[in-house]
């Protein structure tokens, strides 16, 4: 009998966007390995998915910045799930740019949360999945990585690193039958953006973004701008000449 159950690992599983994706997957046959740093939030996420119809839901507490602990986590993950059909990397922080300009340690810490830790995880996951010969690596980057803006270029730099890393990895894993999707959300209404004065019309719900992410994973899209109109916005922004861009208040 073919096993149609999706085996899914989520890093940063307590993220609002990631949890909204997990809820959609839970409606079909799915088993989860949820990784996050807050045990209580992880437990609550697991309970919610269970009520919504998920099969086994395992949790694992890990701070993504503790790179040395990644291999043990992944070993446990493969032990639990057997194989990985979808790995969603969703954790991230929105750094205080002004503070990062004054404090090198803070800047590097934030760069690690949004960039290095993702690259570290992808490196290990890639080898495992290459050997497995199937599955999808879904990585949440950001439109902020498309161009450096004074208001958040540290975050943008880390996301740009992730985007470029994924592009290279996609080409490498293509041959092994493993797909890599780079997800670039625009503004999403989540705890990360709480209290920010964002233009209301441009802010999407985590549910809407999750729906497009799940569809894009099915369709094996390479790069997803979500909501889709961000593709057009970023096309324009990417083409603004530097002599103008550097004067703009962005």
């Amino acid at each position: 009998m073919p096993d149609n159950t999706k085996k899914i690992v989520i890093i940063g599983a307590t993220s609002a966007i990631a949890h909204a994706c997990a809820r959609l997957w839970a409606l079909g046959a799915a088993e989860f390995f949820l990784v996050g740093r807050d045990p209580e939030k992880l437990r609550q996420a697991a309970e919610d998915l269970t009520v919504r119809g998920a099969g086994q839901v395992a949790t694992y507490v890990l701070d993504a910045n503790e790179l040395a602990k990644h291999p043990a986590m992944l070993a446990r993950c493969f032990e639990t799930l057997g194989r990985i059909d979808i790995a969603l990397i969703a954790h991230g922080t929105l750094p205080d740019q002004a503070a990062c300009e004054q404090d090198v340690n803070l800047a590097l810490q934030e760069f690690s949360s949004n960039g290095l830790s993702v690259i570290a995880l992808l490196t290990l996951l890639a080898n495992r999945m290459e050997a497995q010969g199937s599955g999808t690596l879904a990585v949440i980057s950001s439109v902020a990585g498309d161009r450096g803006r004074p208001s958040n270029y540290l975050y943008g730099t880390a996301k740009a690193a992730v985007t470029t890393f994924c592009e290279g990895l996609r080409g490498r894993l293509y041959k092994a039958g493993v797909h890599v999707i780079t997800i670039k959300p625009g503004f999403v209404d989540t705890p990360m953006t709480q209290g920010l004065p964002l233009p209301k019309l441009l802010v999407a719900s985590p549910e809407a973004v999750a729906k497009s992410i799940c569809q894009a994973i099915e369709k094996r899209t390479n790069t997803l701008y979500t909501p889709a109109f961000w593709w057009a916005i970023m096309l324009v922004i990417k083409h603004i000449p530097t002599f103008i861009f550097k004067r703009a208040r962005l």
């Binding site: 309970e47 009520v51 705890p191």
Partner: peptide, 18 residues
């Protein structure tokens, strides 16, 4: 809006905690 999780459901009794 963020307190939107289900907690438990008992299929036998129909009691839902959320």
């Amino acid at each position: 809006q963020g307190l939107n999780r289900f907690i438990r459901f008992d299929e036998d009794t129909g009691r839902l905690v959320c």
